[in-house]
Design a protein around this nucleic acid. Sequence first.
DNA 1: GTCTATAACTTGATAGAC
DNA 2: GTCTATCAAGTTATAGAC
Lengths: 189, 189
Amino acid sequence: MSPTKKRIFEEAARLFQEKGYPAASMRDLASRVDLSVSSLYSHIGGKEEILQKICFDNARHYLRVMAEVEKGPDDPAEQVRTLIRQHIKTALEDITSVTVFNDEWRHLSEPYLSEFAKMRKDYERRFIRIISNGQKRGQFTDLDPTIALFTMLTSLRWLHQWYPAKKGISKKALESNILAMLMHGLEKR
Amino acid sequence: MSPTKKRIFEEAARLFQEKGYPAASMRDLASRVDLSVSSLYSHIGGKEEILQKICFDNARHYLRVMAEVEKGPDDPAEQVRTLIRQHIKTALEDITSVTVFNDEWRHLSEPYLSEFAKMRKDYERRFIRIISNGQKRGQFTDLDPTIALFTMLTSLRWLHQWYPAKKGISKKALESNILAMLMHGLEKR
DNA sequence: GTCTATAACTTGATAGAC
DNA sequence: GTCTATCAAGTTATAGAC
């Protein structure tokens, strides 16, 4: 990918995060990369192409991690911990892209929207299977697996608003705190 | 409020939830309430007025609940439980409005945006104080209070996508599962 | 309160010169 | 690959008749 094209994608991700996809205009984007609007179209096919790349790159990434975890040791508690750690790691490494992936995917048009939903559903199904396994072995509390899953997945969504501002806390500390919160909860017992 | 005005606000909330505020047009809204676009303006001042009402009604509600909790028994664990229960209750009772409040507030224009941010920050500050109190008394684990707070607050944000589809599970069961997950975590110990 | 018609503006995208 | 100029469609909102 050419340097200009790369810059366009990076600035677009930032813009989509700040304003949301529909409110982000190609004029905004052009001004940020210091090009005219029409010049953008020498590098990309259109606005939605950018959203598609962000969404599917991330979806593929998460599915790849899931496949690795499934191939690894058959220990549900460790598998869940690995998945959460990966979510945190990915979110911190490329918080802009992950945020857009999380919040803006619904603005994909068909048939991309359906394709994306399928991948998402697949990921959730496989995650829930791991949680169910852990419950069968008595490692996990008998919560509804879906509730447990979504509580974990969404609890990472505040990072992009909050973490950049709070430099005092290290990535390691952040990871261990979130992991402790989700695995052990707030209350002592 | 007149019945027509009420219907406009209700349909608008649904529309904002489905498409997001910027992508929801007054034409969409007019068509849903079976009026012409111009007739909408006999009932409301404009598009953003609807968003403002949703955001500030909810913000005031949450702050009112917080005030009651602060006046109640000085037991941090019980206070946190009450707050979470209230979040779940409110979300289930008016899931559309709460979702818009959560996801679309950033599209408020000034000075409303700053006013809203102030109320939000106030709520967070007071919630964090309760968590810190619980930690000082040894009721809570020594997590970073901000991390604990946002993990709790955002973990409720998936309800609107998921709960309407999954009728098998009762509100009571949902509440106890989420509460258990946040207070005790996934893992047995 | 309702409508039709329209103003004033922004949107994504393209034509065509250089 | 860059630009200026422009298009066609969509946006919120209003004027004014009934």
